[in-house]
């Protein structure tokens, strides 16, 4: 046999889909990555609460929050471009925020010849600013913490065990279910089907139904497998203690809170 030169095909690795649950994590060595997952989770949660409590008209305060989040991003050594791309999940909120000034009551300001509602503009800005900050903070959390550590953190902050279990199964089985969905799509398309319009919704709905039944049955089999290994309704998740160094995470919400109080005084 002769040797053949390998023909390489360049493929841009796309991130969505298959490894849902893990694919958000970006491995780096940074102060942020090293923090206890629960401290990060709590810090993000508190930060978001402070952000949400901030009145919509405190424009500069939001600017400082943004600065705080960006500094965390820098410390975490995460690739800025990749993180920026992930912000697309926010798009639905952006659309909603953009609609507010247009459909808001009492159009009373003129912007580029459009008469917009001032209340709507402010509300729109508020939603946009708060959502952006919240999404950014969560994105950094997800990129610096593997999915299972986030589960452990949820258990650590005493989220009901049943809910943590459900989240854990979601992380484990989303890939399996997506694969199943993909196979069904391939099977449909192999027989000449492509979803083009409303007349095909029936088929898609049936696929969704079939997927639901399959997942339900898988759930029953998994439950049996769990029972045969002594499952009694609760599952243990990691329970590492917080160390002194982990409290650094709370600098984010504390600084945010100080900013808020300062701006309101």
């Amino acid at each position: 046999m002769g040797t053949q030169t390998a023909i390489e095909v360049r493929v841009d690795v796309h991130e969505h889909g298959h490894k849902l649950g893990d694919h958000l994590y970006i491995h780096k060595h940074s102060r942020i990555h090293d923090l206890h997952p629960a401290s990060k989770l709590l810090a993000v949660l508190l930060f978001i609460i402070v952000v949400v409590l901030t009145p919509n008209t405190e424009y500069w305060t939001f600017g400082i929050y943004l600065g705080l989040v960006l500094s965390v991003l820098v410390i975490s050594k995460l690739p800025v471009k990749r993180m920026a791309k992930r912000m697309v999940v926010e798009v639905p909120f952006v659309i909603f925020a953009l609609m507010l000034p247009i459909f808001g009551r009492e159009p009373d300001v003129e912007v580029f010849g459009l008469s917009l509602s001032e209340a709507g503009l402010i509300a729109g800005f508020g939603i946009l600013a708060k959502a952006t900050l919240g999404v950014m903070a969560s994105m950094i959390l997800a990129a610096t913490t593997p999915a299972r550590d986030i589960l452990n953190a949820l258990a650590f902050i005493k989220l009901p065990n049943t809910l943590v279990q459900i989240a854990s199964f979601m992380v484990r089985y989303s890939a399996v279910v997506l694969d199943e969905l993909q196979r069904m799509k391939v099977a449909r398309e192999s027989r000449g089907f492509s979803a083009r319009g409303i007349q095909h919704w029936r088929v898609l709905a049936q696929s969704a139904g079939a997927l639901f039944i399959r997942s339900y049955e898988r759930g029953e089999r998994v439950h049996l497998a769990m029972l045969s290994r002594g499952y009694r309704g609760t599952m243990d998740f990691g329970n590492e203690r917080l160390e002194k160094k982990d409290y650094v995470a709370f600098l984010l919400p504390i600084l945010a809170l100080i900013t808020l109080i300062g701006s309101l005084l």
Binding site: A147, R148, L151, R172, Y173, V176, R218, A225
Partner: peptide, 16 residues
Amino acid sequence: DDQLFMPTVFEDVAFG
């Protein structure tokens, strides 16, 4: 896939 439901291999084997 019906039998492996934990996030890692170790945790799965340790479940029982």
